[in-house]
């Protein structure tokens, strides 16, 4: 990206956060927020050695919609499991082989898995090849891995192509 605006998406995000924090749309806050959104990435650009490249905003939107829906489903599932008989739970650890290479994409995947049905990401291996996941009620390991790959990993590969 160019020199004065190293991370346009990050700048936009900062500007929105500032406006939300000030909770107003007065011109002063808009200008101050824009100034901060331009200045902060310039100072912090060195903390981001490899920038995540974004492709396909439409896939991102579809992914977010699936993700929000899954959060609701996840909570109903977990509520049922928590209030149901504890002895019937089948908790287990599974390892998910990762196809994603980008660190940021792996972070997003682990984050999504923690918020969606019955799974909590527990550990990324040192070589970034596998992700250890704890499942609250495991039914069929292969089926779950297939589902995760199809539902989350494939769209993420399109969103972060590098």
């Amino acid at each position: 990206m160019n020199r004065w605006l190293p991370q346009p998406m990050f700048s936009l995000f900062l500007w929105l956060v500032w406006l939300l924090l000030a909770n107003s749309l007065e011109p002063g806050h808009i200008v101050l927020g824009a100034f901060l959104a331009l200045a902060l990435p310039l100072f912090t650009v060195r903390f981001w050695p490899d920038q995540p490249c974004m492709g396909r905003p439409r896939t991102l939107m579809a992914y977010l919609a699936v993700f929000l829906w899954d959060i609701v489903i996840a909570n109903l599932t977990v509520a049922r499991l928590i209030l149901g008989p504890v002895r019937r739970l089948r908790p287990a650890f599974i390892t998910l082989p990762l196809d994603l290479k980008n660190d940021f994409a792996i972070t997003v995947l682990a984050h999504s898995l923690s918020l969606t049905p019955g799974t909590v990401s527990s550990k990324v291996s040192e070589d970034r090849r596998t992700l250890l996941i704890h499942v609250l009620d495991l039914d069929d390991e292969d089926q779950l891995i297939q589902r995760i790959k199809k539902r989350y990993e494939t769209p993420l590969k399109e969103i972060f192509p590098c």
Binding site: V78, A79, L81, I82, P91
Partner: peptide, 26 residues
């Protein structure tokens, strides 16, 4: 409340993680 019930009721740490991360946040 369900998240905290999970925290108090489930048998070991890794299962207890599920309640607070999902139910309490929502």
């Amino acid at each position: 409340l369900i998240g905290s019930i999970g925290l108090a009721r489930l048998p070991d740490l890794f299962t207890r993680l599920h309640g607070p991360t999902k139910a309490t946040t929502l």
